[in-house]
Computed example of a mutant assay.
Amino acid sequence: MHPGMLYLCPTPIGNLEDITLRVLRVLREADVVAAEDTRHSRKLLTHFEIHKPLVSYHEHNKAERGPELLQRLLAGESIALVSDAGMPGIADPGADLVRLALDAGVPVVPLPGANAALTSLIASGLPSEQFQFLGFLPKTTKKRRALLEEAASYPGTLIFYEAPHRLLATLKELQSAFGNRQAVAVRELTKKFEEFVRGDLASIEAHFQTVAPRGEFTLLCAGAEPKEADAALEADPSAQIAEAVAEVERLVAAGEHKKDAIRKIASQKKLGRRDLYQAVIKEAVES
């Protein structure tokens, strides 16, 4: 018995025309569609006259549903994974199912399509040569502050997702961590009332203090100026270690062996290999 295929199918982030012809074909041919919200996805499938069994797969049932879906894949079924909007696996539990499938030897096929972060970036007016996607900020104050402190010295554009009821609080936190940098708040992407609010963090906060935030937001913030980044590292040596640990984690996530990643980054940053190793282990334990 050959395993089936796990297809990662991007769905529209607003305008239904965002969906690709290939995604529509795969949705029609798959044995089952695994959806973050079956009610939401049923409307999408009905619009395109696609009639397939829907199975829920979301943050609250992934521990039980993931192994169930894996067994179906191992039995030869093909599964189309969709999120409520955009790329499955970006700021949703799809990444967990991908890891389960890959660990079991099931082929995973990504399909290109709509994505709110990149769609916002290319029209933001902020630099796009280098950027970092941070998604939704952690829920706890301690973890949020740690993440923002680490990101403060990053030179490229920073991209966040945020819910409307959290937007003002997040804008305040970004100003506290970064200062009053240039930024863009994006809402209703590809919809009738698509809106880009450009300015600095303070002016954007002022705007949404008078205009109630509505809809999910993509929030983009300019990176640190080169002098600002250097000064942050010089003033706080621990920031250099934190930056090195983050780079090690990025290399490991990309498939590099941890020891090789530590050796490489320690050499680039002129850090002690043992010190960096201990910092990486400490970060893994605390997270």
Rank of each mutant, 00 (worst) to 15 (best):
Y154F: 09
G125H: 11
V184L: 04
Q182K: 01
T170S: 00
A163C: 04
P88R: 05
P93K: 05
L118R: 06
N180I: 00
Y154P: 06
A95T: 10
L118G: 09
P110N: 13
S128E: 11
L171D: 02
A146E: 14
F136I: 11
F178S: 03
V184T: 03
P127R: 06
D84Q: 09
L81I: 06
P110L: 12
E173M: 03
L147V: 12
L102E: 14
D96L: 08
K191M: 01
T140L: 15
A101W: 00
P155L: 14
I122V: 08
I90W: 12
A116D: 12
E129D: 12
L147H: 15
G156K: 10
L111G: 11
R145E: 15
L137F: 01
P138C: 07
L102Y: 15
S176E: 05
G156S: 10
G156T: 10
S83A: 11
S153M: 08
T157W: 10
F193E: 07
L171F: 09
K143F: 12
T190Y: 10
Q182G: 01
A95S: 07
D103S: 14
L148K: 10
I122G: 11
Q132E: 06
V109H: 11
R181V: 00
V197W: 00
E188M: 05
P88Q: 02
V82D: 02
G113C: 14
P110M: 13
D84A: 08
K143D: 07
P88E: 03
L137R: 00
L126G: 05
D96R: 07
D96F: 09
L102C: 15
A101L: 02
E162Q: 02
K172P: 00
E173C: 01
P112L: 07
F193T: 01
L81G: 06
E129H: 06
A163T: 12
Q175P: 05
E149Q: 15
N115W: 14
L171R: 05
E129V: 11
F193W: 08
